[in-house]
Design a binder for these strands. Structure first.
Length: 269
DNA sequence: ATGGTGGTCCTACCA
C-alpha cells in the first residue's frame, strides 16, 4: 500500500483552516502533522477536518502558543504525548498505525523550541531550553527502543543542520537555528535512531533546500533567504520503503500564508 | 548594523 505523511507548521490552525483545506484537497496526504496550532483542544477545528475526510485526530494544544496535532484518513492509536522539559508545553504527540501486511509504524510529531535570538544558554533561557529539549530527546527517542515497530519522526525542529539548508552558511553561524551547538545536538538525536533524512535522500546535500521563509522580507521569493527547519526522518528499517518526497514551496505564496510550507513523504509498504 | 512582519489576545510575548 501507498502511504503519504505530511508535516506543516501552520502558525494558527484556526486562522489558516482554509489553507489547510486547500492543501488537503489538492495533495490529499493520508496523514498531516501540524505544529503551532495555537489553540486549546476544545477550540481545534475538528469538524472541518472530518468534513475533509480526516476523521482520526490526535490533538495536543494549549492556549495561544505551540500546539501539535495529527489528522489522518487512516485509523491509529494514540500512544504518547510527552512533556519534554516538564514545562507543560504542547510540543509532541505520537500515534501508531497498523498498515495492512506491514508491521506497526510509530509516528512522532514534534515542535522543537525556537530558542529566542541570543545563541548563548547562559544568558538566554529560551536557548537553554532548546538545548535541554534536544538532550532529552536524544536520550529518549531511539529506534531500537521501539524495535517492534517502524518509526517516522516529523516536525518543525527549528534547526537547519546542513550548510545548504540555509541561504548563507557563514552569515548564519551565530544565528539561532544554525549554530554549531544546536546542529551538534540535533545530530545526536539523529544518530540515536539511527534515522534516514527523507528530504536529503532526494536532494543532494550540495543543493539548497528550504522549508521556511521569514515574514520579514519585502519579497520572500526574490530574496529567497530560506532555511530548512522542517524535517521528516524515517527509521532505517523504513528507508527501503521510501518512494519520494515533496516540499510545497508554492504555498508560501498563497494569501496570508504560514512562514513554513508543507513537506510530504511517500512510502510503499 | 538594524529592523523588518505576523500570531495570540488586549498587553506583551513569541516566532
Amino acid at each position: 500500500m501507498r502511504l503519504s505523511v505530511a508535516t506543516w507548521n501552520i502558525n494558527s490552525v484556526r486562522l489558516r483552516i482554509d489553507l489547510v483545506a486547500r492543501f488537503l484537497r489538492e495533495q490529499a496526504p493520508d496523514v498531516l502533522c501540524l505544529q503551532e496550532t495555537k489553540c486549546r483542544d476544545s477550540e481545534f477545528p475538528s469538524a472541518e477536518f472530518r468534513k475533509l475526510g480526516y476523521e482520526h485526530l490526535a490533538i495536543s494544544g494549549q492556549k495561544g502558543y505551540h500546539g501539535v496535532a495529527i489528522v489522518s484518513r487512516l485509523p491509529f492509536a494514540l500512544t504518547d504525548k510527552r512533556d519534554f522539559c516538564a514545562m507543560g508545553d504542547a510540543r509532541h504527540v505520537c500515534v501508531q498505525f497498523h498498515p495492512v501486511a506491514h508491521r506497526p509504524v510509530n509516528l512522532h510529531n514534534f515542535y522543537v523550541p525556537a530558542g529566542g535570538d541570543e545563541p548563548d544558554p547562559t544568558i538566554n533561557p529560551k536557548f537553554k531550553h532548546k538545548l535541554a529539549f534536544l538532550d532529552e530527546l536524544a536520550g529518549w527517542i531511539t529506534v531500537d527502543k521501539i524495535a517492534a515497530a517502524d518509526a517516522i519522526l516529523v516536525g518543525d525542529l527549528n534547526i537547519a543542520p546542513l550548510e545548504e539548508d540555509v541561504w548563507n552558511h557563514k552569515a548564519l553561524l551565530k544565528v539561532v537555528s544554525h549554530t554549531p551547538i544546536e546542529v551538534e545536538k540535533l545530530g545526536a538525536v539523529f544518530s540515536a535512531g539511527p534515522w534516514v533524512d527523507a528530504l536529503r535522500r532526494y536532494v543532494p546535500k550540495e543543493e539548497k533546500l528550504y522549508t521556511w521563509w521569514s515574514y520579514r522580507a519585502a519579497d520572500w521569493a526574490k530574496a529567497n533567504k530560506g532555511r530548512r527547519l522542517d524535517h521528516i526522518w524515517v527509521s532505517e528499517s523504513l528507508g527501503p520503503h521510501l518512494s519520494g518526497m515533496q516540499v510545497l514551496r508554492e504555498s508560501r505564496g498563497w494569501t496570508r500564508p504560514s512562514d513554513h510550507v508543507p513537506v510530504v513523504a511517500y512510502f510503499e509498504l
